[in-house]
Design a protein around this nucleic acid. Structure first.
Lengths: 217, 217
DNA sequence: TCGGCTAATGACTCTCCGGTCAGTTACCTC
DNA sequence: GAGGTAACTGACCGGAGAGTCATTAGCCGA
């Protein structure tokens, strides 16, 4: 009907093999974030990506492989950038910590949390996925934060602490806060994420302050 | 065949209407904890409970109602006991905090986390479940911890902080730690939960210490 | 403009699982 | 024991969704 007046293209679809992969990945991220792994239908992903289900299977062998590709493409670049910044920044350890928390929250936390949510929920059913995530994401993330802690301790900016567990105490509340906004938060008053970060950061700095030096605020 | 030699009871099954409900609840908790909500089949629950699927539907109208009943029976009694203890204990606020963390971890954290995992993962697909959990569990839990914080601040044992967000900073790392052991932790070296709690508690106490008084350790 | 290559479609199959219900069987009472 | 009742079974239904494949149709080179 109205199609007739369309000027240049009356084609129902176009061949665009190069663009498909990123488009499908973006669509899949969106769907997985919204519905989890088993809650997402391949038909939905296809619809969001503007193709049909059959096409998905030209680019990815199955649902699990699609999910792995989503994780890889969404998480790894960001982690690498952060690692680089930390390695070459002249800032103090407390400043670096603040930077990490803020950057993380402002750029990719929602994405990371959507993915974490799925991993937490479905790792029991998909061991390969779990192992992949552990090695590629968790290990690197903990290492990054642990590095900043070590640096601070060496420089005397932090008291001496259990690196691994403290790193977890730093990362996990932020993760949970975002998990929250993406799950139960949908049905309660939303929490102010940057204020939460502030409260958390302040608790941390005081908790990490060196023994004797009652640092001026 | 061999049935004939069975001494006292040749019956294939027995009528035990009183015992069924708790048995089904226990079986369901176990299954849900292992496989999540959508990952658990009613047939599995039935098998673990030693009945057939049809029987489940004599006691619970559907899967969602069964899950709600599981949550109710597993979480609420514990919460109430804790509330009572806090209300009538003569301890200081830091002591109460330590007690809460320890008690929680040692008694029911694994159960709570199994449930939280499901809620986090599937609240998007089951809004009723989410709302139920918010009102019955989360609100009360936060209120409990928030109460201890307020107490501490009034008494001058803690500095003045944002109650709600700080309560979250107290609870969430513990939750995440246990979520961890029940998901990715299955594939990595396990973390020492009581040492984690220790590190977390120490960070908290220093982070909450009153402004001026550089409290002795 | 024609032919062939392959990206893309969409209707199909097959399996899995929540929920149902007619029938079976344990138990209780007389 | 005979009969009545309600606890319990298990075969069944229907819908949903992962994965398949024969067919269609854009694109490109000659």
């Amino acid at each position: 009907m109205a199609e007739i007046t369309a000027p240049t293209s009356t084609a129902k679809w176009r061949r665009r093999p190069e663009e498909r992969t990123p488009e499908i990945l973006a669509a899949a991220l969106e769907c997985f974030a919204k519905g989890g792994f088993s809650g997402t239908r391949m038909d939905d992903v296809a619809a969001v990506a503007g193709v049909t289900k059959g096409t998905l299977y030209l680019y990815f062998p199955n649902k699990e492989a699609l999910f792995e590709a989503v994780v890889r493409s969404a998480v790894l670049p960001v982690l690498e950038m952060a690692q680089e910044h930390v390695a070459q920044s002249p800032d103090t350890a407390p400043e670096l910590l603040g930077w990490l928390l803020q950057r993380w929250q402002e750029t990719t936390l929602p994405t990371h949390c959507a993915i974490s949510k799925i991993i937490i929920a479905e790792s029991a059913s998909f061991p390969d996925l779990a192992r992949f995530y552990l090695e590629e994401v968790v290990a690197r993330g903990l290492h990054l934060v642990g590095g900043v802690l070590k640096l601070g301790i060496e420089r005397g900016e932090f008291r001496s602490v259990d690196i691994e567990n403290t790193a977890r105490c730093i990362v996990w509340p932020m993760l949970m806060a975002n998990l929250w906004t993406q799950s139960l938060g949908l049905y309660a008053e939303t929490i102010d994420l940057s204020q939460f970060r502030q409260t958390h950061y302040e608790l941390l700095l005081r908790g990490l302050a060196p023994e004797s030096a009652a640092e001026r605020k």
